[in-house]
Design a protein around this nucleic acid. Sequence first.
RNA 1: GGCCCUGUCGUCUAACGGUUAGGACAGCGCUCUUUCAAGGCGCAAACACGGGUUCGAUUCCCGUCGGGGUCACCA
Length: 424
Amino acid sequence: MKVVTRIPPSPTGRLHIGTARTALFNYLYARGKGGRVVFRSEDTDRARSMREFEDEIIEGLRWLGLSWDEFLRQSERTNRYQEVLEKAVTSGKAYVSKEPKKDNPAEEVDVVRLKNPGTEVVFDDLVHGPINTHTGELGDFVIARSMTDPLYHFAVVVDDMDSGVTHVIRGEDHISNTARQILIQEAVGAPRPIYAHLPLILDKKRTKLSKRSGATSLMDYRAEGCMPEAMVNYLALLGWNPGDEREDFSLAELVEDFSLERVQKSGASWDRDKLLSVNQRWMRKLTPDEYLARGAFDESVRKAVPLLKERAHTFGEARELLKGELACLFATPSLNRALLTSKGGNTARYLNDLMELIPDSTEPERVRAALMSYADKEGRGATLWPLRYALSGQERSPDPFTLIALLGKQTATERIRAAIAILS
RNA sequence: GGCCCUGUCGUCUAACGGUUAGGACAGCGCUCUUUCAAGGCGCAAACACGGGUUCGAUUCCCGUCGGGGUCACCA
């Protein structure tokens, strides 16, 4: 049997990290089994659903590298729902009930309720094992606001049936919905898919990750300069592991190795630091060309790439670095006399001597070799600190050898002259 | 509160009856070093508790406690 999974976001808000991870797992499972993926926009709540959210969700999932074979919107399937609903009512599995409207008791509406047989429903969850529910407690629950306006539970059953969905992989918060969906399946004669409920992503307070938990929008991470490869890698490791100690996974490798059997049972908290660490690893794998392209940097930034790879966890951080700590690579710093001489000794003489020793090289190691014996003779602190400060104008910066190599002998010499001038 | 899920370092996790309980992120220390960053080396850090079962339990069973989810004419 060909595997069919679904990615069923509700376009009532921005693309949430949890939605992205669930989508990823559905994608990984289907692709790993050579199956199909259905993207289904669950927009039956017409008041809250917005096309712009749908667009963002699609854009975000594509950014991660996910793809699907079928696309549909629930709002475009109302005729089909009505057809199945009528059959359910005709066959006596459901009934129309005239009731006061929930939000406006003065008005009466015809809601559709499922005739609940009240049986024990047991299903085998692929990650949790058998789960038993006493459906009697549910009563005859509402499945549609009217014959033309189905509710979520009813719509998904019809959709899953029509798309031939074989595996429903979703968040654990849906466990309690499963029994009623199974009841609906049985009422309309739909096959029961296999269920797999994923552990929830928790925030540091260990409660379901929500908007108030901080950055939960996938696109915010993209804007920060997170790589999609890193996001996929981190998301996959939140709740799943390969069974060995590997931690670096591309999307393709995940497709290869992912299995629902190795999905964790308990919730996992979102750890931004770990994400950043994974992202830094991915950024370091980039070639200079790729780095410039991915970070949307100007060609002039090329010389700073090695330093950025060393320091930045995101492209956003890299941009900050270029404006701050690494700005001295692109603009002449202004110097403070007190800081220049703060290590004592004859600063002017040291700078003068060192300036003469500067080789014409783009290799930090060669520059270092040329200057170190002098520094060792006169004292590293007293010589190298003013040298570095003269070049950077900052208390914190890369080392002077790297600075000279990147700046070039001429610029370096000019900056040292400027520093010496201040001292006289 | 009812129902359901769940419980290994601070966090993500490995272990599928016998291990000095492993790795990663974060933390700390040392080293390198003029500073910062990076790097190298190292340290600290967990089986929730109580009963069973067993020659032997982190691992199996039960209970307690803890955490989470869910109880819509939302999805």
